[in-house]
C-alpha cells in the first residue's frame, strides 16, 4: 500500500469515530507511531487506534487542537 493509501485508511478510521461523536482523550507516542484513545462523552465507551502514518499523525493532532479550541472557546 502506498503511503498515501495508508494515510487515507488511517484517516478514515479516525473520521469514523469522530463522526460517531467520539473525542480524542489521550495520545501515547511510541516506536510504532501513536496510540490514540477516543472516548464517547455520553455513552462512556472507549476506542483505541494505532496510527502509524506520518500524515495521519498530523491529522489527528490537528483534530485534537481543534477539539481543544472548541472546548476552550
Amino acid at each position: 500500500m502506498s503511503e498515501y493509501q495508508q494515510f487515507l485508511a488511517e484517516r478514515d478510521q479516525i473520521d469514523f469515530l469522530i463522526q460517531k461523536g467520539f473525542q480524542i482523550s489521550q495520545v501515547k507516542e511510541h516506536l510504532d507511531g501513536a496510540t490514540v484513545e477516543f472516548v464517547h462523552p455520553k455513552e462512556n465507551i472507549t476506542e483505541t487506534l494505532l496510527i502509524g502514518n506520518a500524515n495521519a499523525r498530523k491529522y489527528f493532532s490537528s483534530l485534537l487542537i481543534k477539539q481543544k479550541q472548541r472546548r476552550n472557546g
Partner: peptide
C-alpha cells in the same frame, strides 16, 4: 488543515494527557 507547529502539537498532546 489549519497551521500547526510541532510545539503547538506537543502542547495539545500533553494537555490531553493532563486532562
Amino acid at each position: 488543515l489549519a497551521p500547526m507547529t510541532w510545539n503547538e502539537r506537543q502542547a495539545a498532546l500533553n494537555a490531553a494527557v493532563e486532562c
